[in-house]
Structure formats: C-alpha cells, structure tokens
Simulated assay, not measured.
Amino acid sequence: MRHAEEVTFGGSGLDRAAELRGDIPALAALMQAPETRTILLWRGKVLMLQDGSGLCRLPLDHPVLAEARGEPLFLGREDSGAIFSHDISGWEPEGEAPGEGGFLDSTEQAHPACPGAHFVELRALLTQLTPRDAELGATARALFGWHQSHGFCARCGTKSDVFMAGWQRICPSCGAHHFPRTDPVVIMLITRGNACLLGRSPGWPEGMFSCLAGFVEPGETLEAAVRREVVEEAGIKVGAVRYLASQPWPFPASLMIGCHGAAESDEIEIDPNEIETARWVSREELAAAFDGSNPGLQPARRGSIANFLLRNWLADRLD
C-alpha cells in the first residue's frame, strides 16, 4: 500500500542512531547534554502530559529517575536531542487499586514528582499519539518487556548483562549474545465479492469483530501462514495472498503483518479452540458499523491495523 506507514506505530522517521549504541563515551556525553530527554514507563504504561499534548519528555536530572530500575535504554535522536527511556516499575502508588483486568486497563497513575502528567496504557492512546510519540512509546515498551522476560541466558541459564544501550544482552558465562525478540503475526483481510471475513475471540467487548490473525510458524512463508490460519480458525480456503502493511504491536512483542487474501470458499466452520465465532460482513454492514448506525457490530478499535485495513478496503485504497 502506498500509504502503509500511516498506520498507528508506523514509521515516524526516528533516527535510531544504532552506531552509537556501543560507543560508551558518546552515550555518556549524550547523557550529560542538557537537551537530552527521557520518556518514563511504569509497568508497561507511558508517562503522558495531562493536557493531551503528548509524551512527557523529562531531563535526565529529574528527581523521579532516582527510582529507575535497571539501566536506561537509548532510543535514538530527535532534532532537539537524544532520547532515552527509564522504567520505574518498582514504584508503588499510594492507595492504588489494582489495575483492571480484561480487555484494556483504563486506570491512570500520577507520580507526585511528575505534576501535570500521568501513566496511561499505550493501547488507550492509539488515536491520540503523534507518529513520533507512538514509535517512541512502542519501542520503549517492547524493549523493557523483552528485558523483563529474557534476563537469563537461553543457552546456559546464567543471568545475562545489558549491552549496546539496551539493544543486546550478553551472557558472562558462555558469551552468548541475545537480541530483542519480535514475533511475526499475520493479520488477514479476507474478502469474497462484496464481503469480508471477521471473527471474534472470547472476552472481547460485546459485538466486537476483527480480522483473523495468527503467529507465523518456523519454516513458513507469510502467504502460507495466512492460508493455514484462516483454514484452522474458520474453515475457509484462501487463494491469492498479498502483503499490505505492517504494525509493531508491543503487547508484548509482535509485528502485525497485514495481508489481503482472496477466499475460494464461503462456508464457515470455526474451531472453537481458536475463536468464538466468525461471519461474513458486507461492505454496507461494515460502513454502517463505522458510522455508528449498526450497533450490533463493533469493528476493531481505531488505531489497530485491523481497523486500518478495513477502512481502506471500504475506501478502495488497498493499492
């Protein structure tokens, strides 16, 4: 698609400055530079300005950073200076109720050292973030999530050390190098004539439907993954498949690979272990769902790649 990177978390042109990740003197100089800023995370949530103007960028001498656990991550450079990220997940908000379970945690937390800002779940901000803030937030969340779950060497079990400004871990025992993990997931806009195939998973909000999706398996092409997942989940055979767009999805570490597939059958037979139900939805039904006149059908949330693909299909903009 010619406008593929318009999707949320699409490329913002951030200079990731990978050549500086192993340059300790250069990184030290950046951390002393007055224009350098950091974005703050707490248990996967990002610190946002309460006036709605975007991510809260803090100077590196801000007192709240004394609570940071582990080392800061180097995210890259903006025109205004270098950008790092710190994590203060060890902070316990006073009198804080536990976060909501289910589909989305909509609670917000305010740290007393950061007036005018609050921690917000990134998925609640999909339609509010600028492309740059979205890329920074997604990158920081994915990296911190990887460090949290990959602290030990997968080869020998020894606790590994952080290297390359947070972009590698190295085992001090066997010397193995470990890199941030990204799991490829195909998400499919499957069409047949004037209709598209949508499904829903248990636990989703009532009436919500989205494109089918699934992880790519080892030794499998994207096209094969699309055909396999659609057959497994809905019993529909798919012919021609083409790539459309991608979206980083750091919940915790996926890359959503949007594809268009042409269905060669239309009789749905779901696997209840995979999805709750599936249905064919006409263009007219989907358009009514998007404009609010079809309350029985809720399409995927705006900001998700599924919503992006469906809207562009309605507008005949899949080229």
Rank of each mutant, 00 (worst) to 15 (best):
H3E: 15
E6M: 07
L14Y: 06
L14R: 04
R16I: 05
A17E: 10
E19M: 01
L30Y: 00
Q32C: 09
E35D: 12
T36A: 10
T38S: 13
T38H: 04
L40V: 01
L40K: 04
L41F: 07
G52L: 01
G54I: 01
R57A: 14
R57I: 03
P59W: 02
L65T: 02
E67V: 02
R69N: 11
P72F: 05
L73D: 08
F74L: 03
A82K: 00
G101R: 08
D105Y: 04
A110R: 15
C114M: 11
P115E: 02
G116V: 04
G116M: 00
H118F: 03
A124L: 07
L125F: 01
E135R: 09
T139L: 15
T139H: 10
A140L: 09
A142E: 15
L143Y: 02
L143T: 13
W146S: 10
Q148R: 15
H150G: 11
F152Y: 14
C153I: 05
T158P: 00
S160Y: 00
V162H: 00
M164P: 00
A165N: 11
W167G: 10
A176W: 00
H177W: 12
H177A: 05
F179V: 15
R181S: 11
R181Q: 15
P184E: 12
V185Q: 06
I187R: 04
I187D: 03
I187W: 01
R192H: 15
A195R: 15
G199A: 09
S201C: 12
P202N: 12
P205Y: 09
E206T: 14
A213M: 12
G219H: 10
G219N: 10
E220V: 13
T221I: 07
A224I: 01
R228D: 09
E233L: 00
E233V: 07
E233I: 02
G239C: 05
R242V: 06
W249P: 08
W249Y: 14
P250V: 08
F251V: 14
C259Y: 10
S265W: 03
I268Q: 06
E269Q: 14
E269S: 15
D271T: 08
P272E: 13
V281C: 12
E285G: 10
A287L: 11
F290D: 11
P295I: 02
A300Q: 12
I305P: 11
A306Q: 08
A306K: 03
R311C: 12
R311T: 14
L314M: 01
L318N: 08
